[in-house]
């Protein structure tokens, strides 16, 4: 058994051992192991793909949500603005109306007051005239008891009133 000359026994056993090992391992170990490895890698790959897809979906969902939110916000703004406008308008209208009503009432009051004053003045005038006439009548009655006085009066009246 020299170092560089292969011995027939070992050659034989090596062929047998390696051949047996190869065929046994190929059938019972390498095929299932390699298949399992591939399956696991496929699983991991598909899980990764799924995660990526889910992430993309989440992102799109989020952006959609944001869009919806923004839309809702702008809508709320519009509605609020509209409501404010309406409210302002209502208030303004009410103010205007109240103002007009007030004015109208004031006007009416002023008018009726004026009417009343006119009527009062007229009534007072009438009263004064009546009183004056009564006074004048009484005075006259007293003054014109005698004839002379009557004449004098007439004379006075005639002289004072310029007949032209």
């Amino acid at each position: 058994m020299d170092l560089l000359t292969p011995s027939i026994g070992l050659l034989f056993w090596q062929i047998v051992a390696f051949g047996t090992l190869f065929f046994l391992l190929r059938a019972f170990a390498w095929k299932p192991i390699l298949a399992s490895l591939k399956e696991r890698e496929d699983n991991i790959q598909s899980a990764l793909d799924m995660a990526q897809k889910t992430r993309a979906e989440m992102a799109s969902l989020k952006s959609e949500n944001e869009k919806l939110l923004a839309q809702a916000r702008s809508e709320r703004e519009t509605i609020l603005r509209g409501a404010k406008e309406v409210a302002d308008k209502l208030v303004a209208d009410a103010q205007k109306k109240a103002q007009a009503e007030g004015d109208r009432i004031l006007e009416q009051a002023r008018e009726s007051m004026a009417n009343e004053r006119t009527a009062m003045v007229a009534a007072m005038k009438k009263e004064v005239v009546t009183l004056s006439i009564e006074v004048a009548e009484k005075v006259l009655r007293r003054e014109l008891v005698d004839k002379a006085a009557q004449e004098k009066l007439v004379q006075d009246l005639v002289s004072t009133s310029r007949l032209n």
Partner: peptide, 19 residues
């Protein structure tokens, strides 16, 4: 000589071990 020598025994042992 097809003897189970030290090398052959070790060889067979490695085959069994691997299996």
């Amino acid at each position: 000589d097809f003897s189970i020598t030290k090398n052959v025994a070790s060889l067979l042992l490695s085959v069994v071990l691997l299996l």
